[in-house]
Amino acid sequence: MVIDQLFWLFFMTFILLLIEGFYCVTVTYNLFRILIGLEVLIKAVTLFVIAAGYLSGHLALAQSIVITIIVIEVVVVVVAAGIILGFFREFDSLNVKNARRMKG
C-alpha cells in the first residue's frame, strides 16, 4: 500500500509539472520562455523515470536511462539555444509572433 501511495505522490508531482510546462509553452510570447517550459517538461519526465525505477526495484536500469536522457537533453537545449540566438540575430527580438510567418 505504501508503494501505491508513493506512486500516487510521484504521479501528482509529474502531472503538476506537466501542467506547468505545457501552460508555459502554449501561453508565453517569448521564445526563451518556451525553452524554459520544455525544460520543466523534461525534468518532470526524468523524475518519473527515477521514481518508476525506485518503486519497481529497477533503479540501475532507471539510472542508466536517466543518464542518457540528460545527455540528449543537453544537446537539445544547446541546439534550441542556437536557434534562439540565430532568431534573435535575424529579428532583433525573441517575440514568438515573428515565428508565425509560415501558415496555411
Partner: peptide, 11 residues
C-alpha cells in the same frame, strides 16, 4: 533520496 546517486551527479 531515492538512492540514485550516479544519476543525481549527472543531473
Amino acid at each position: 533520496q531515492l538512492g540514485a546517486p550516479l544519476a543525481a551527479v549527472f543531473e
